[in-house]
Design a binder for these strands. Structure first.
Lengths: 162, 162
DNA sequence: ATTCTTGCAAAGCCTTTGCAACTGC
DNA sequence: GCAGTTGCAAAGGCTTTGCAAGAAT
């Protein structure tokens, strides 16, 4: 993990069960959902639906594409996962047990660097107060090239000059 | 316009022609492209591909869907338009002749409020320096409900209580 | 004349959905 | 047993693309 975890009182699994039980029409906790929650929270990665499907299949789980999509939506709604829109792609990351943060996304290698910034909160508050805007969420993504890819580029440029 | 325009030396049209001419393989300036540039810069709206197609057809222009998509990509590349990813939808807005800004997006009425904040630039610089990240762009979108929709909600809540 | 652009329709990509079989509770 | 869930395959949005006809330089 790139950032320190946040102390939480329940496991993601029990938090999800609580969510399901508290719905207007109580929802069921199935084998597929359990496998998904456990698998997703057994590692700390950004992932998209397709990657999750592939990796879970490789890991020997039996979950259909439709169920992956349906359950991801529930996990987001339950506050376990956060949706991350990157260009035209949708990624997911842990929300429960993980602090608020933003992303630097390297366009060369695809790596996502997480960062926290306390001033951002101040800006958000100021701007929203000024516009009497009631905020419920935000997206802050910085695109560019990471340190490693930058080095690679500079090296390549030097080589090109020879 | 919600923000003051930036002084620019050329018209969007000539800036675009310059871009086309400067390509490795010079590209052509067509009637459809001219109509699109003129139409888009004759008003200051956020729009998506579909809206543009509909509105241009209504305005009596003849441009195919494929050409709209192909030309929008060129306009973004030329620095005339900025792409705005909102959830799963892609919007476009003026870039050339318009200052850097961020958005508050009302999830109730869909309205986009533009704002500027100088501290944001500082944060970006600090964070990128710290991570030796070379930034090329960013997305900052705040979701919530605007002042007007907030009032409507409060009113509705009051009425519900009667 | 050459080469790029257009328009059409087909294909792609990702995501959602209808429906019968299935399974938590 | 009832109501919600699954898996499949089909359908949906939105965007891209192959290709023949057309237009810019």
């Amino acid at each position: 993990m790139s950032l320190p975890a946040v102390q939480v009182s329940q496991s993601p699994e029990s938090k999800f069960r609580e969510y399901l039980a508290s719905r207007p029409k109580p929802q069921r906790y199935t084998e597929q959902q359990r496998d998904m929650v456990r698998y997703i929270f057994s590692q700390h990665h950004h992932f998209d639906a397709d990657q999750l499907i592939d990796r879970m299949k490789q890991a020997g789980f039996r979950v259909s594409r439709a169920t992956i999509y349906r359950t991801l939506a529930k996990l987001v709604d339950a506050g376990l996962l956060r949706r991350l829109e990157l260009g035209s792609k949708t990624f997911y990351e842990h929300d429960y047990g993980y602090p608020q943060h933003e992303h630097l996304v390297c366009e060369a290698c695809g790596n996502m660097i997480e960062f926290q910034n306390s001033t951002l909160e101040t800006i958000l508050n100021d701007v929203c107060r000024e516009h009497q805007f009631h905020r419920t969420g935000h997206t802050f993504i910085v695109r560019g090239t990471c340190a490693e890819c930058n080095r690679a580029r500079v090296t390549k440029r030097r080589l090109d000059m020879i």
